[in-house]
Design a protein around this nucleic acid. Structure first.
Length: 578
RNA sequence: GUCCUCGUAGCUCAGCCGGAUAGAGCACCAGAUUCCUAAUCUGGGGGCCGUGGGUUCGAAUCCCGCCGAGGACACCA
């Protein structure tokens, strides 16, 4: 039994059409929709069934619409049905049927809107996956929120969801991090070296100078004493310490990242280490698989166009035939030193996912990785023989604004805003909600002042306030249970605004499904905002005398008898003053 | 040069994988509110949906060209 009355009425419409046109194949009905009409004066629902079926049935849409309307009007749920426009059928539902949704919704509780859309499908949602080279900053925030919200959304829509974090702990960045942590370790031992002397001694210089590594140095000293250094806190050869320091540092960084994520309400199920995958031979396994399918060869790529590379030179590389799967060029898998490229390691990562039995993979990436999507989809298609899908949701950069000024992200200038700073300043809920008030691939400004402002300009506050007011209403009613409410006489829900609120709530299940299908969690935030408007409109005096549309506003053209109450009043007072 | 993401009201953005007269918030103007929190509500003005074609009963939505913004373009992650 579906909770979605739109789906239920759609089934009724299809059934009616099938009876009218018994000879039509089942596919003819696939595109039939039942949805809320844009203009609420048209009714509660509208279906395009007659339009869709007209062509295969070889009958004019208006004729079919009239016949369909007649049948739908006879349904117990339906107050009236009328053909309209080029072949739509508009339905108006009986108020009793709408009211009956209330106990159903109350009975479902938080499970209201749960869907079986993704039933039987396992999806892996990978998000954040920040390099473990430092604390989370605001740049990571949007991806974390979008990914987490999307994973929750898919779970509500019936998918079996795994939340995953891919730890990029195999590249040069992590080596640089280890050197930086080692410096803090030497400092903890009381080395006489200066920072610059140390920086000059390592290739690429000292890259991570933030003091967040100081505790790591202390921890290394606590665990290993002086054993990782020469006497006097002088650096030892990397072979003596590099693996140890790197592992400990990554471990501690990941611990900090997990804490930051927890503060944001994000808890991922699986943390996959790039290094561990490589060490386990996943890269070779993936290569062998691709090679067996004839998708690997050695060749020389053209130099990239439109961009001059000083050090470019023709070089033979091991290449993956990504072009066979829609990518622009074939992609290299091995660096000149023989180790895997980031892409190759990521292929190993995806093989690992496929082997764990996921049928769908979802990633949330920063928009600057947009150019990477096609090759990864190509790889997944190649590895899974086209059986596993990869969807990538791109999250655009967030520009942080404070006091009307953009906050520049600079570690050196000390204006580096950590995720924790942000949460401490404006609160977890405000951060999460605000990040979802835009489509994820749209650029967004995050105004630190506005999200804590208790005003109409702040959608976070708007929605929170509506919730507070709900509680207030319940408190005023003596804190009834859901069962108490369900047993209450429904006939008193007669105001147009109250019925509008019920209509709004009946759209929740389809909103969940549509948002999950589109992988767009922001739609849930928008639903909250429209729901809020509809709710707040209830109880206003205007609500009792004029109809209300789905957004809580009133219809442009007032319908129904009589003047709006304030016009009545103005007229009478004008008469009185005369 | 190629690819990706975009272009909708003055501003910030929705628009439910093709539907009827394109919406909201903010801003502006004009009003309401003895009543669950004035932390609210209502009305109004305001848009060639970047642009030119195409697909069809029907396009903001799908396809192609162009203009404009941002991003990515061998051994960085």
């Amino acid at each position: 039994m579906t909770q979605d009355i739109f789906a239920a009425l759609r089934a009724r419409a299809v059934e009616a059409m099938r009876n009218l046109l018994p000879d039509l194949p089942e596919e003819a009905f696939a595109r039939v929709q039942m949805e809320p009409p844009r203009d609420l004066t048209h009714g509660d629902m509208a279906t395009n069934a007659a339009l869709v079926v007209a062509k295969p049935a070889r009958q004019p849409p208006p004729k079919l619409a009239a016949a369909l309307a007649e049948r739908l009007a006879a349904l117990p749920e339906v107050e009236s049905a009328a053909p309209a426009g080029p072949g739509f059928v508009n339905l108006r539902l009986r108020e009793g049927f709408l009211r009956a949704q209330v106990p159903a919704i109350l009975a479902a509780g938080e499970g209201y809107g749960d869907s079986t859309l993704g039933a039987g499908r396992r999806v892996d949602v990978e998000y954040v996956s920040a390099n473990p080279t430092g604390p989370m900053h605001v740049g990571h925030c949007r991806g974390a929120v979008v990914g987490d919200a999307l994973a929750n959304l898919l779970g509500k829509a019936g998918w079996d969801v795994t939340k995953e974090y891919y730890i990029n702990d195999a590249g040069a960045q992590v080596l640089a991090l280890a050197h930086a942590a080692y410096w803090r370790y030497l400092q903890a031992l009381g080395t006489k070296l200066t920072e610059e002397e140390y920086a000059q001694s390592i290739q690429g210089g000292l890259q991570y100078r933030g003091d967040y590594l100081v505790p790591v140095g202390e921890a290394l000293r606590a665990r290993y004493g002086e054993s990782l250094a020469e006497p006097g806190g002088m650096p030892a050869g990397p072979s003596h310490w590099l693996d140890t320091v790197r592992d400990v540092t990554v471990e501690l960084m990941m611990q900090a990242i997990r804490e930051d994520l927890a503060a944001l309400g994000v808890r991922q199920d699986v943390f996959v280490s790039e290094r561990a995958l490589v060490a386990a031979g996943k890269l070779e396994e993936a290569e062998a698989l691709l090679a067996a399918r004839g998708l690997i060869y050695h060749g020389v790529l053209e130099p990239p166009k439109g961009k001059t590379l000083d050090d470019w030179e023709p070089r033979e590389q091991e290449l993956f035939r990504a072009t066979q799967f829609g990518d622009e060029v074939d992609r290299p898998l091995r660096k000149s030193d023989g180790s895997g490229t980031y892409f190759a390691n990521d292929i190993a990562n995806h093989l690992h996912k496929i082997e764990r039995g996921f049928s769908e993979l979802v990633h949330v990436w920063g928009a600057d990785h947009g150019g990477y999507v096609k090759r990864m989809q190509a790889a997944v298609a190649a590895l899974s023989d086209g059986k596993v899908s990869l969807d990538v949701v791109l999250a655009q950069i967030v520009h942080v604004v404070k006091d009307g000024q953009p906050v520049r992200m600079s570690k050196r200038a000390g204006t580096y805003v950590t995720l924790r700073d942000l949460i401490d300043e404006v609160g977890r809920d405000a951060v999460r909600f605000t990040m979802l008030t835009r489509k994820s691939d749209a650029q967004m400004e995050f105004d630190l002042d506005k999200v804590v402002e208790q005003s109409r300009e702040n959608p976070v506050f708007y929605v929170q306030y509506a919730h507070a007011r709900c509680r207030s209403v319940l408190r005023g009613a003596g804190d009834p249970t859901a069962a108490d409410l369900a047993a209450a006489p429904l006939e008193s829900l007669a105001d147009p605004a109250e019925l509008a609120l019920i209509r709004r709530l009946t759209a929740w299940p389809r909103t969940v499904e549509a948002a999950a299908t589109a992988r767009e969690p922001h739609r849930i935030a928008f639903f909250s905002m429209t729901w809020r408007a509809t709710f707040m409109y209830c109880g206003t005096r205007a609500a009792r005398t004029r109809p209300c549309d789905s957004f809580g506003g009133m219809n442009r053209k007032p319908q129904g008898p009589g003047w709006p109450w304030w016009l009545r009043r103005r007229r009478s007072s004008a008469r009185a003053s005369r």
